[in-house]
Amino acid sequence: MSNTAITVTLDRERPADVRPHLIELERVTGTGVGQLLRRVIAGDFHANDLSETVRLALIGGGASPAEAATLARVYIAERPLTEGHGLATEILLAAWNGTKPAPAAAEPPSDYDAGEVILDDTSPNPMRVENDGSLTPVGSLTPAGAAIFEARRQQRAGIENADRARRDAVNAAWLADNEAE
């Protein structure tokens, strides 16, 4: 995979890379990639922005155009907008920032449970604690996500604002549970 490719989960895990198709993405969405990224992150996107981003990323990852169109229709266009929004954002951020190989497995502190998503001090992106204790990147943070993870970090560090950090952590858990449905 290139340094802008990611793995997305639709019907199964699939490689996705929109970088080779940015000119086509600009053509079909009617805007430049920078504006498209800002539009998607801000939530001011057109529905077509999401499905076309995913469709072209799947083609960039090796899917046939027909298969990519079907997957984008079934998993983006016909699903709640929040699902396509998160995926399109992740794809566009990978094209913008590039991707880094997963860091070497590190043993998380003992107060983290398997499956928990944390911010590790070695990465600006969230990491999932696996059953074997290794850390796996889970994508880029939105500004709201960054605030929630910072609140969790402050809570663990014993900062005075622990009550607010706990409230934010509860909200984050509720959001995570509802996004998983």
Score class of each variant (00 low, 15 high):
7 T>Q: 10
143 P>L: 12
133 G>F: 05
47 A>H: 09
176 A>Y: 12
146 A>R: 13
23 I>E: 14
113 D>Q: 08
22 L>M: 10
99 T>Q: 03
74 V>S: 11
146 A>C: 11
33 V>P: 02
149 F>Q: 07
90 E>K: 00
173 A>G: 12
72 A>T: 10
71 L>H: 05
137 P>E: 07
105 A>P: 04
90 E>R: 00
25 L>S: 07
65 P>E: 07
23 I>V: 15
154 Q>Y: 13
26 E>G: 12
116 E>A: 14
123 S>C: 14
166 R>M: 14
142 T>H: 08
151 A>Q: 05
6 I>G: 06
107 E>K: 11
76 I>H: 00
81 L>V: 11
56 L>C: 08
129 V>N: 03
10 L>H: 08
75 Y>C: 15
71 L>Y: 12
159 I>S: 14
139 G>K: 03
148 I>E: 13
83 E>P: 00
50 L>S: 02
169 A>Y: 07
170 V>E: 15
78 E>R: 11
98 G>Y: 02
30 G>N: 11
108 P>D: 04
2 S>C: 07
38 R>H: 07
82 T>E: 12
47 A>N: 12
136 T>A: 14
175 L>R: 11
40 V>W: 00
101 P>M: 07
59 I>F: 14
173 A>T: 13
151 A>R: 01
78 E>V: 08
153 R>V: 01
69 A>Q: 11
45 F>L: 06
68 A>N: 06
98 G>L: 05
128 R>Y: 04
135 L>T: 08
66 A>C: 02
134 S>D: 03
83 E>R: 14
38 R>C: 01
2 S>F: 07
71 L>Q: 05
13 E>M: 08
95 A>D: 02
9 T>Q: 09
103 P>F: 04
156 R>A: 09
131 N>P: 13
18 V>E: 01
86 G>L: 08
112 Y>V: 04
48 N>S: 14
116 E>C: 06
161 N>Y: 05
167 R>K: 14
145 G>T: 01
171 N>I: 15
36 L>N: 03
168 D>M: 15
21 H>N: 12
14 R>V: 05
67 E>A: 11
1 M>T: 09
161 N>T: 12
77 A>C: 09
146 A>V: 06
84 G>Y: 09
176 A>V: 06
178 N>M: 11
115 G>E: 01
48 N>E: 10
92 L>T: 05
75 Y>W: 15
159 I>L: 14
112 Y>L: 05
145 G>A: 07
165 A>T: 03
131 N>K: 12
138 V>H: 06
69 A>N: 15
38 R>L: 06
112 Y>W: 12
25 L>P: 05
145 G>H: 03
140 S>W: 04
135 L>M: 13
58 L>N: 02
66 A>W: 06
106 A>M: 02
5 A>H: 03
163 D>K: 08
116 E>M: 12
43 G>R: 00
173 A>N: 12
107 E>N: 09
116 E>D: 13
88 A>R: 02
46 H>A: 13
131 N>E: 10
169 A>T: 13
54 V>D: 00
64 S>G: 15
45 F>S: 03
